[in-house]
Structures are given as C-alpha cells and as structure tokens.
Simulated assay, not measured.
Amino acid sequence: MIRIRLALLALLLMASVFGYSQNTANKWTEERIWEWYNKQPWLCGFNYIPAYAINYTAMWDKTTYDPAAIDRELALAEQSGMNTLRVVLQYAVYEDDPQYFLKTLDGFMKICEKHHIKFMPALFDDCSFGITPDPKVGKQPEPLKGWYAWAWSPSPGHSMVTDTTTYPKLEKYVKAVISRFKDDKRVILWDLYNEPTNGGLGTTTLPLLKKVISWAREINPSQPLSIGAFDNNQRLNDIITAHSDVITFHEYGNRETLLKTIDKYKKFKRPLINTEWMNRPFKSTIPDVLDVFYENKIGCTLWGLVNGKTQTELPWGHRPGDPEQKVWQHDLYHGDFKAYDSDEISLLTKLIKQSKTESYTKEHTHAH
C-alpha cells in the first residue's frame, strides 16, 4: 500500500512539473522579444469600447454590434495618428455562437487594418462595476445616469471563474480564438486576462489564469503573450512576470508614480507596455506623462476614445447623487467627436509623428 501511494505521489509530482513546463516552454527569450519589439513603431493608442456599447457584451452581441459606428470612431482615432487599440472579448457571445463570434472578430480586425491600427485582444476580464458579475447575451441595459460603468460585464463572468467544471468550455474558447488568428499580422499581442482577481474575486481567479496561460502556450502563436499587472498582489504578479513575453501593466498615477512603476518592471529586462492609463484628476494626463512613454519607447494605451454609455468620464465608484466632478476622468472625445481638450490631441499627434521620424537609441537591449 505504501509503495502504491508513493508511486501515485510521484506521478502527481511529474504531472505538476510537466504542466508547469508547458506553461513556460514556449515563453519568448529576451533576445527574441527585444528583436520583435525593436521592429515595432512606438505603440501609442487607446482602450476601445464603442460609444454605443454599455459593456463589451453590447459591443460584440448580435443584437447591437455596429461595424459602421466602429468604422467612424476608428477613423477619428486614425486622424490623431494612434496606431494600437486594446479590446476585451466576451466569452458569452462566443459561447452563444462561436462561428458568428469568430467572423465578427475578423470583421472588426478589417476595420482596424483599414485605419492602420493594430489590435490587442484581451480574452478575459474580472472587472465588475455594477451589480451583475455574470454576462448575459442579448440586448443590454441602458445607462443609469451617474453610475460609472453601471452595466459592465466581466468575461467569462465570476460564476464560471470559480467553477472549475466550466474550464473545458473556456479552453475551447481560448484555443479557438488564438488558433484562428495565431499568425494574423493584425494582432500585435495577446493580452490573456484583464485584471485577474479584480471585482472581488481575489485568489479564486488564479487557477483559471494558470490554465489560460497553458492553453495559450499550447497554441504557441506568432504574437507575444502577456497579462497586465495592475496592483501590488505579489502572488499574482509573480505569475504574470514569470509567464509574460512582454511586461504589460496598468498605471493611472501621476508622473512620479509612473516613473517608480517603470523602474519596478525594468528589472525583468523585457519591453514594457502600459496598457491602461489616463486619469485626469490623478494627473495621469497627456501633458503630464505622455513624454515619459515617448522618451523611453514604452508602449501606451490610454482609456478611452469616445465617451458614451459606459459614462467613464465619471470617477471610479461614482454613484447617482454623488457630487459632480467637473474634470473628466477618461476619454478623449465627446459623443459628437468634439475633442474634450484639443491641446491633448495636438500633443498626442505631435509625439506620434515625431516617433515616426526619429530613430531611437536601442538602450533596452538584451546586452543591457
């Protein structure tokens, strides 16, 4: 009996080691990721959700997906010179009709390509700002005036994150999406999971996160993989930095805070991309911090483009009846495409244009 138990324990340990090696086997070397990154332009763009969409379910759902509206908004982004956008995908829409979802995703990429914008998809998202932590397909609620991101819909939803019996379904989704576009030049990189553990889930997300990394590595796409670091959870950040080809991170703080965060992640000797920033009341603004990204050739995608149903001009946690905040938190344009601040757009356009004509000194190479 003891021998049998020891044999079983040995098998379990071998399986564990094999699973871990699968996680890291296809991770890009420093040399490879720098070679890739140094061929890219300065990646400067935005997190995108159409003004018509109250959440990412509404963006992708059959009842509301609007390519004409997306085309108009991305034309606006193109005028400023922005070359990258990041979007969260919605598992629930895929589950409802996988063929429709993949076809719609391809159509969206065609619009991005038309406007010379590279696509950074995020497969999952734990964030939840409203009262419903699970998405439902179909027509979505209308905004509740004064409530920041009132009907935000996580992907795949908190119930599935915590229910391991759903993981085979999620594996099919991850592998189907990445396999379909694994060699597609319109995809700049795969952001596997937006803010895992957020929305009150805590460490219950970590088993799924590890699985998602393994599934993506099995496909081994030609684009790099990443997961954005967004807080000081050491256990989470250890997973993120161990398994990301590019170090992506969120930082909505002021110039001093941003510089400290950059220093923290430079030690991993990999390219850096800030995939969420711009909070005007916190002094995370285009005039205050954009030059930091530019001078260091750190990619950056601010939040967001056109103000709409998500009401992200309001501060985080804002509820109906709270005092009005005169300064917008996020977004570059009003719904009528008028700039919130034309000086912001001018500076954004100026630096992007400069980045195309100036040659950068390769300071962040493997040799350093």
Rank of each mutant, 00 (worst) to 15 (best):
F282Y: 14
K103S: 15
G202H: 00
G200N: 08
T84Q: 05
F293K: 08
E113I: 04
V212Y: 08
V246R: 11
I2E: 13
D183N: 15
A122C: 14
T24M: 02
H250V: 13
E31C: 03
F181K: 00
V17K: 08
A122D: 12
V327G: 02
N26R: 15
G335A: 13
V88K: 09
Q325M: 11
T301E: 08
P196C: 13
H368V: 06
N47E: 09
K356I: 02
L85C: 02
P154N: 10
Y294W: 12
E344A: 00
V87I: 15
M82G: 11
P271H: 03
N26K: 15
P287M: 00
P50G: 12
R32E: 12
Y360M: 00
A58I: 01
R235Q: 10
P50I: 04
E31H: 07
L102T: 14
I49Q: 03
E35Q: 10
M59F: 15
W42N: 13
E324I: 12
T57K: 09
I111M: 05
D61P: 10
I33Q: 05
Y94C: 03
H366V: 14
T132P: 00
Q311M: 14
V246N: 11
T257P: 01
L305H: 00
V327T: 15
E171C: 08
T357D: 09
F249T: 14
Y52W: 09
E295K: 14
V289K: 08
E256A: 14
I286W: 10
S244T: 04
D336V: 07
Q223I: 09
K114H: 06
T166G: 03
P281T: 05
K39W: 06
I352V: 11
R3A: 12
I262T: 06
P50E: 08
L314Y: 06
